[in-house]
């Protein structure tokens, strides 16, 4: 394949290629699929982009779960549009990962066999309608914080996919915020539902930025490669700084008694997070891990006949076209 041609000498050192790679990074330029790149860079990107794609695909489930029960036709239509967007995000990212030499079937397989990781946030259940609000506001909000700097990631296809994704994400966050806003303007029971949901999602959303910097061994290398632009803790701080005034507008209380403006730092202080829980959920022991992967596998396997039929139809038509061409000539 031409995409791999420039990289067939895996293991051997391509000095000119390495120099060119270093130069591209130093000049803040993009690395493209045909450029030489270190194996570690390629592997890191394959892992990161495919995990990201899986997250988008699995991320359809917690919300898909509410499409049939959305409280109005308008809400249902909006929720469907959002879930469709997440499917699109997954597909943009699978395409980007493929430019690095992994094929889509392999990635699908890794996901449905449970070999691949995806964002642990999607392993939490969504028992109430308010969770659709919290996911949009907090989960998509955190995702946006994470993803905006990725638009400048050094790998061209990844950065370009992220640009498209970021454009679509802002609607996700706003629609979630509005769901909560409407609940907070509603009855006592509705306000309680919104608050209870925010209580559950706040900490997991903050953990979406990954472990603290001194416990994040791969971050430094990713930053040196211009894949990651800001550290986990910096992004988390930025997110909290945005959330506090937004929570005030909503009238919800963020479930952290340590949130306090720090004049000296020019940031909000906030309490420590329970990382043992994060690692538990990441290790597959979250409340919904098994359900998410099982459902994905079911959907994939149930769709096998559709893929087969489409392929058979395409093959038959190609054969027909070939036959009529022979007759014509």
């Amino acid at each position: 394949m031409s995409v791999r041609a420039a990289n067939t000498d895996e293991g051997t050192v391509d000095e000119a290629g390495a120099a060119r790679f270093a130069e591209l990074l130093a000049n803040e330029q993009r690395v493209e699929p045909t450029d030489w790149m270190p194996e570690g860079y390629r592997k890191t990107l394959i892992r990161q982009i495919s995990q990201h794609a899986h997250s988008e695909i699995i991320g359809m489930q917690p919300e898909g779960n509410w499409i049939t029960r959305a409280p109005s036709l308008k809400r249902k239509a909006i929720l469907m549009a959002k879930v469709q967007d997440e499917a699109g995000h997954g597909l943009y990212l699978y395409s980007a990962a493929q430019t690095l030499g992994i094929d889509r079937e392999t990635m699908f397989d890794q996901l449905i066999t449970g070999a691949a990781k995806y964002s642990s946030i999607f392993n939490y259940p969504t028992p109430t309608w308010a969770d659709m609000g919290s996911i949009g506001w907090l989960v998509d909000g955190a995702a946006i914080c994470n993803q905006v700097p990725l638009c400048r990631a050094s790998y061209g296809p990844y950065g370009r996919a992220m640009v498209r994704i970021c454009k679509e994400e802002s609607f996700h966050q706003r629609q979630g915020f509005e769901i909560l806003l409407h609940l907070m303007r509603g009855t006592e029971a509705q306000r309680a539902m919104a608050q209870e949901s925010v209580n559950r999602w706040y900490a997991p959303a903050l953990m979406m930025f990954g472990p603290p910097d001194d416990d994040s061994p791969n971050s430094r290398q990713s930053m040196a490669w211009n894949i990651k632009r800001f550290s986990n803790d910096d992004l988390r701080q930025r997110f909290v700084d945005m959330l506090v005034p937004q929570a005030e507008i909503l009238g919800v209380t963020l479930p952290d008694p340590h949130i306090k403006w720090n004049e000296e730092r020019g940031h909000f202080d906030f309490g420590d997070l329970d990382w043992t829980e994060f690692h538990e959920v990441l290790a597959g022991n979250g409340p919904a891990n098994t359900i998410r992967v099982a459902r994905r596998r079911e959907a994939h396997e149930d769709g096998a006949w559709v893929r087969e039929a489409a392929r058979a139809y395409a093959d038959a038509r190609a054969a027909e076209a070939g036959a009529s061409q022979k007759i014509a000539s």
């Binding site: 597909l91 943009y92 395409s95 493929q98 889509r104 498209r164 893929r307 489409a310 392929r311 139809y313 395409a314 038509r317 190609a318």
Partner: peptide, 11 residues
């Protein structure tokens, strides 16, 4: 605009 997978042109 981008890439995608499909069994034939129509799809």
């Amino acid at each position: 605009a981008g890439s995608l997978h499909a069994p034939d042109e129509t799809m």
